[in-house]
Design a protein around this nucleic acid. Sequence first.
DNA 1: CCAAAGCCATAAGCTCAGATCATGGCAACG
DNA 2: CGTTGCCATGATCTGAGCTTATGGCTTTGG
Lengths: 297, 297
Amino acid sequence: MATLRQLEYFVTVVDESSFTKAAELLHVTQPALSHQIRTLERSAGGPLLERLPRTVRLTPTGRAMLPHARAALADAERARCAARQAAGLEVGELQIATLYSLTLGVLPAALRRWRQTHPDVGIRLFEHRHTEELVEAMNAGEADVAVGAEPTDWSGVTRTLGTEELVVVVASDDPAATGDTIKLQDLADRAWVHYAPGHGLADVLDHACAQAGFEPRIAVRTEQTAAAPALAAAGLGPALVPDNILDGNLPRGSHVLRLDPPVRRTLTAYTRGEPDPLAAAFIDVLVWGEHAAGTRR
Amino acid sequence: MATLRQLEYFVTVVDESSFTKAAELLHVTQPALSHQIRTLERSAGGPLLERLPRTVRLTPTGRAMLPHARAALADAERARCAARQAAGLEVGELQIATLYSLTLGVLPAALRRWRQTHPDVGIRLFEHRHTEELVEAMNAGEADVAVGAEPTDWSGVTRTLGTEELVVVVASDDPAATGDTIKLQDLADRAWVHYAPGHGLADVLDHACAQAGFEPRIAVRTEQTAAAPALAAAGLGPALVPDNILDGNLPRGSHVLRLDPPVRRTLTAYTRGEPDPLAAAFIDVLVWGEHAAGTRR
DNA sequence: CCAAAGCCATAAGCTCAGATCATGGCAACG
DNA sequence: CGTTGCCATGATCTGAGCTTATGGCTTTGG
């Protein structure tokens, strides 16, 4: 009999079209994954996947198996959720406190994944402009778990999720819109699309420019993270934004430049005490999501 | 994540209302089963089963989980079958050659189980009166697998399934219908419900009586195995029948006596060459069924 | 054309999950 | 009250599933 683990491995390889990527997502090494798929193939009576250079594709045998494999995984998860709900362990809502920019950045992907595994758990989002505000709210008992930049002097439990990278968006016809990378000091005399005082990314931009030896002149300030790339595309000046809020949705008429050296922000999930089961599960999803995001760059 | 094994264990305990019986069916020891159910319960967040003296019952948590557990198991099996069919390994029909008495005895249970795991595989039965005939038919290429008494000088592959025990059926008002066991020689002067010459069980009865030191007088001969218990119940005399053809369906007005010492017939599955995957799978089911039948005595 | 990178498979070794055997505790039964 | 039935727990063993190391093949880029 196939194991759920094997079925999960198979489905993930199919979804990623790659053993290596699936192994990373699943937090096992590629040989372990390879071995399990092989075992599954022996049980199935033939190859499920055709190994091509740089990708894999489903065989007819694999195609026949895939929907049932997905169904088995879903039913097993439903079995667990149904039992836990009956046991009173599934609460109706997970409360998350976070920064505005993360609502646009890392959270959507994580929440998408969360919904797949916990379809019956509601989400309540508390959004804050910057880290101090977020920390205050958490200390005041606002949410189950916070997601943001690493707080200083946090007395509770923290878990590092990874880093997000900041990139520069400029208009397509901007003189700087050549090549893929740029040095921040090359934009020292530019007027920037900046963020409103107190906005979390304002500090990040100011700090990065200070490190590069200049103070940014201000073309415009916005309170909305999502507005920054659009304003940059409109030609008001360069904007520094987390690359994960772009995620393929580049404003028309804009150009993205990576910074050399890179500017990064470390992301952390933190709770006041030991996270309850739901919060812990969500943190795991966040860790997974961050890892997956990393492999796509 | 729960494993399919745990889900299977859980479902089987529910179906049998007993850890001990489920463990026997699943060919594991009771402590192993107990441990797996415990692990599943921890994942589910609470007890799935209420352990009562002499039985178990579902908790609300267990009741919530059960249908999804069944679904997951079914999906996993469908995944496997779909793949094997796509791989050309699922043929439309399994051909089984056997003895008449086994069609009434061990085969129904085995076929019931087979249908659960291979719902799409047809069964074709070839029934024979005794072993020589069965062997000839198999040598002539009749079926994929034969089930019967151990053949002599079989050049192919054999697999011992276990033994079936022969019991004596008498009428309720028969003088011998006292107690649960009897010695065969205590029935030496009785006229027996015998089987037609050439019937497989005729040899078994003759041989057993010869071992006990007498030749059975004949009250009546029947060509139908299933008729023997009924004739015995009618008072024509004792009949020697495999206990598994009774299987709880005792003819009205009859009494069953176990023999001391027991008379048994060894059952074997055999194929001409290495069994193909379907035949091998069926043999596994037979092995499983024999074990389960043994525990019900 | 060659070196490097990407990607999967295989082998050896390690660890822990899942099994067995032994035993104990509790309830029911005769 | 002793026996039987039944599940839980503990100690021990084994094999499944993992990691690390390595190899083979293809593709890519200089």
